[in-house]
């Protein structure tokens, strides 16, 4: 039988192994990594709370010099959710947008200013659907489900 060891760390401060890097600003996060010639990415997000996607028109954005690629939900047919509540999620919205801020398209461009300008040229057309801003209204009889898990 294993004998339980005395708990030496309970109730004490155990500083993190990477604490000194984090408190000195030396820790490198993904956003801190810069390579020569690195492209800038920006995401176009839904301004609608709930809507059926009629069209995502990226043609004007693609014409902008310095824009290298744009992907939309049409390019993302695989779900990626790991958690059960997210297993029906796509990286970019496909049939519907389900909340204001849901990613709809992603732009790669030579720099951030160009990527931002490309976002302004993307045209999202939706048929708006009822949106619910309280738990009560979302649970009311006749409310439509935001997603099917």
């Amino acid at each position: 039988m294993n004998k339980p060891l005395p708990a030496r760390n309970i109730g004490t401060y155990v500083p993190m192994i990477d604490g000194p890097e984090k408190v000195s600003g030396r820790a490198k996060y993904t956003a801190d990594i810069v390579h020569p010639g690195q492209l800038a990415g920006r995401i176009y997000r839904s301004p609608y709370s709930h809507g059926e996607i009629v069209a995502v028109d990226v043609s004007e954005a693609l014409k902008l010099p310095g824009v290298l690629a744009i992907v939309t939900g049409a390019d993302c047919d695989k779900t990626f959710g790991v958690l059960p509540v997210a297993r029906s999620e796509h990286p970019l919205a496909r049939d519907r947008v389900r909340y204001r801020g849901e990613p709809v398209a992603a732009v790669a461009a030579v720099d951030d200013a160009t990527a931002r300008e490309a976002l302004r040229r993307i045209k999202l057309t939706v048929r708006e659907l009822p949106a619910y801003y309280t738990a009560k209204s979302a649970l009311a009889p006749g409310a439509s489900a935001a997603s099917m898990v």
Binding site: V14, P15, E21, K22, S24
Partner: peptide, 19 residues
């Protein structure tokens, strides 16, 4: 050597992901 504030955040666990 870390400064006083840096030591505080490190030793008193004021930092997790650190961002």
């Amino acid at each position: 050597q870390l400064s006083a504030v840096q030591r505080g955040f490190h030793e008193k666990l004021g930092s997790q992901c650190g961002y």
